[in-house]
Measured scan of single mutants.
Amino acid sequence: TGEEYIAVGDSTAQQVGDLTFKKGEILLVIEKKPDGWWIAKDAKGNEGLVPRTYLEPYS
């Protein structure tokens, strides 16, 4: 379980453990880390770190 967020920009994984996503994708945020990198899952079930500045709450 988690909260749904929509990507407001494209982000390409810079290192192992990062999640690549495109603008408009809905991501499920699993954990919000205080350093600004959140753990999220995409629609295909891929999981990784995403920069919170690229996400907005999805409603």
Rank of each mutant, 00 (worst) to 15 (best):
T1D: 11
T1C: 14
T1P: 12
T1M: 13
T1Y: 14
E3G: 07
E3S: 08
E4C: 15
E4Y: 15
E4W: 15
E4D: 06
Y5M: 04
Y5G: 01
Y5Q: 01
Y5K: 01
Y5A: 02
Y5C: 04
I6C: 06
I6W: 05
I6N: 02
I6P: 01
A7T: 11
A7K: 01
A7C: 11
A7G: 02
A7M: 05
V8A: 06
V8Q: 06
V8M: 10
G9C: 15
G9F: 15
G9Q: 15
G9M: 15
D10Q: 05
D10L: 03
D10P: 06
S11Q: 12
S11E: 03
S11Y: 15
S11G: 08
S11H: 15
T12M: 12
T12V: 13
T12R: 11
A13S: 14
A13G: 13
A13F: 10
Q14W: 13
Q14P: 08
Q14H: 12
Q15A: 12
Q15L: 10
Q15Y: 10
Q15F: 11
Q15E: 10
V16D: 12
V16T: 11
V16M: 11
V16Q: 11
V16G: 09
V16R: 10
G17M: 06
G17K: 06
G17D: 05
G17I: 05
G17C: 07
G17W: 07
G17H: 06
D18R: 15
D18H: 15
D18M: 15
L19S: 01
L19T: 01
L19E: 00
L19K: 01
T20F: 09
T20E: 09
T20N: 09
F21Y: 05
F21V: 06
F21L: 04
F21H: 00
F21N: 00
F21E: 00
K22L: 08
K22P: 01
K23C: 09
K23N: 05
K23R: 11
K23V: 07
G24K: 02
G24A: 03
G24Q: 02
E25H: 06
E25I: 03
E25M: 09
E25V: 04
E25N: 06
E25Y: 05
I26K: 06
I26T: 04
I26F: 05
I26G: 01
I26M: 06
L27Y: 03
L27M: 05
L27R: 00
L27G: 00
L28D: 02
L28W: 14
L28K: 07
V29I: 11
V29G: 00
V29N: 00
V29T: 01
V29Q: 00
I30Q: 04
I30A: 02
I30Y: 07
E31K: 11
E31F: 14
E31T: 10
K32R: 07
K32C: 04
K32W: 04
K32N: 02
K33P: 07
K33G: 11
P34K: 09
P34V: 09
P34D: 12
P34C: 11
P34E: 11
P34Q: 10
D35E: 06
D35T: 07
D35F: 05
G36C: 04
G36A: 04
G36K: 03
G36L: 04
G36E: 04
W38A: 02
W38C: 03
I39N: 04
I39C: 07
I39D: 00
I39Q: 05
I39T: 06
I39S: 04
I39H: 07
I39K: 08
A40G: 03
A40H: 00
A40R: 01
A40T: 03
A40F: 03
A40V: 14
K41S: 05
K41Y: 07
D42S: 05
D42T: 05
D42C: 03
D42G: 04
D42W: 02
A43G: 10
A43V: 09
A43I: 09
A43M: 11
K44P: 02
G45M: 03
G45P: 00
N46S: 06
N46R: 09
N46A: 07
E47H: 09
E47G: 04
E47F: 14
G48Q: 02
G48D: 01
L49G: 06
V50K: 00
V50L: 04
V50C: 04
P51Y: 15
P51I: 08
P51S: 13
P51L: 14
P51D: 15
R52W: 13
R52V: 10
R52C: 15
T53P: 06
T53F: 11
T53C: 14
T53K: 13
T53Q: 14
Y54A: 14
Y54H: 13
Y54K: 14
L55Q: 01
L55R: 01
L55G: 00
L55F: 06
L55S: 01
E56F: 08
E56N: 06
E56R: 11
E56C: 14
E56A: 12
P57Q: 07
P57T: 05
P57H: 06
P57W: 06
P57R: 09
P57I: 07
Y58E: 04
Y58C: 08
Y58Q: 05
S59V: 13
S59W: 11
S59P: 11
S59F: 12
